[in-house]
Design a protein around this nucleic acid. Sequence first.
DNA 1: CTGAAAGCGCTTACAG
DNA 2: CTGAAAGCGCTTACAG
Lengths: 345, 345
Amino acid sequence: MKPAGAEATATLHDVARAAGVSIKTVSNVINGYQHIRPETRGRVEAAIELLQYKPNRAARSLRSGRTDMIGLIVPDLRNPYFAELADDVMRAARELGFSVLIEQFDLDRESELAALRDAHLRGLDGILHSVLTLEPGDAALLERVPVPMVLLGERIFDSSRDHVTMRNTEGAEAATAHLLGIGRRRILALGSHPDEEVGSPGLRLRGYADALAKAGVALDDALVVPVDLWHRADGADAMRAVLDAGVEFDGVVAFNDSLALGALRVLLERGVHVPDDVAVIGFDDLDETRYSLPALSTIAPGRSEIARTAVELLVARIRGTDDGPPREIFTGFSLVERESTVPRR
Amino acid sequence: MKPAGAEATATLHDVARAAGVSIKTVSNVINGYQHIRPETRGRVEAAIELLQYKPNRAARSLRSGRTDMIGLIVPDLRNPYFAELADDVMRAARELGFSVLIEQFDLDRESELAALRDAHLRGLDGILHSVLTLEPGDAALLERVPVPMVLLGERIFDSSRDHVTMRNTEGAEAATAHLLGIGRRRILALGSHPDEEVGSPGLRLRGYADALAKAGVALDDALVVPVDLWHRADGADAMRAVLDAGVEFDGVVAFNDSLALGALRVLLERGVHVPDDVAVIGFDDLDETRYSLPALSTIAPGRSEIARTAVELLVARIRGTDDGPPREIFTGFSLVERESTVPRR
DNA sequence: CTGAAAGCGCTTACAG
DNA sequence: CTGAAAGCGCTTACAG
């Protein structure tokens, strides 16, 4: 029995018969092989058009071992950072002829490992994985993934895998130095993860500390505010707690934009003027930061550059045009100055 | 030559040999066929585990004609509405054993048509298409798509395709009635598309007009504000223009949340108090509306219900468990009352 | 420049 | 309950 829906579909054989050539010749035309007589090519193309022939992807994949599909493993798309990243990845992939299969995971470790485990069962040519909870001990697991893989996000361990990330420490340092530069001295670091040094919270905290040290400002532990999840509600809650505790501060370096936006909301609610009383800077350059009140200054991590670089590297691995040792690529960042750090007085 | 990467991969034959059975029996075990002797099943499972056998998806697809993959065609994921929809669709699909291949299109017609044309070339079992610019004249094109398809979004034409949508007109009517209920009489309708009646702008404008009519309030054309794109910046621009023109109003029904959030920003910037001076309500219930200042009242379209309903219908079409006539399903909505419509005075 | 043929790894009637 | 065999629609050495 033919599979359902296959009744009307023309195959390579049908085209070959209609054009009076062998299926090899049809295949050559489809795949852009050079040395074909123009007249033959014309006959084949006419037959393809006539029969509305579309190559069967499953057959092509089975034979060639390739699917022209890459996986993107990310935490949930409700988080605008990852939605924007997914957009950038899909655009970059499309230019290189690849589709993107997105696999979400929840914020726990188990779910991230499960996504990784499942992904390569889906018949993908390669995987982009935006690392969240993986730890140094997981390096062995990563090496077992049987397809090319590029890790996105923080350099959380030495692994034999390719890695594309931004300079987190330098970014946080620049953000902090920016606030110091407009005269702020009691700057909150919003979003630390105590005891976690390898991920972006630890790297960004280090940048914060570095900037203070260079400016000769002592680090006050009361100003380092741990926030577990980096969603807007968490930033709002943390800011409320800080204000209720009576902590004095005149600046905020939030470790991502969502935290900053949540904090911003609470500051306005409590009548604290931003940026005059408290200057606020975030991290990520979400589309949305341009439209908050006030518009949020932030560190732009070059997300589309990260996406493009990562996709190009992955495709080079898939095609075998790059078989060098694992690469670790750092992308540039920039400080975007908006209203939240430009005091009027 | 074997395809690259296939060297170490065990096949059905390897498993069958290791378990001392035929490949048919292995296939039966994998696909959960009932009548297998427990002992045989045990031997096969042990061999699968031993050889780390993973079924080859391309081969399975080629033979069965199914890919267990559905396509989701949406405008860009930078728009939080579609990012949240994609999240919901992926969760619903996963529960039914399907992966989701997302295809974005830009906001123009050509791009939407191209996405639709390409999607079914990707070897998908079915397609969810979130309609944006398609017109009644495109019905014929839609009918030519050779796989099951469910349309999401507005009922913009009668087609022979399945359709899942919310009650746009009733939603906008409820939003408008809510503002009338708190005593507002000069209510802006933000986001109309003049001369376009079949899409959500037209349906929502009708709901606005219906509510006014029921309350005996005359519709003032000066209060109907056309906005082409429904992004935050467009809402901000439109609100600035309205204020600059000196239009008097005490309420805003924005046709989506992004427009509302952009308008909100400008109102606050200009010192207009929300909700005391102007009450604002949006449409979509984006995650973000809970955290704006003030928190935004909105119409919740039941996005996860839409996603689940659409995925279930599509899967029923794919599996042939539903071969009835095209369905048109309307999902429920609810009005979420937050700070932007609860005046303090 | 083109053809005939093998085979990618499965699922599925068909037999027994 | 299990086996032997055909065949899904391509791509790719191999020949000529």
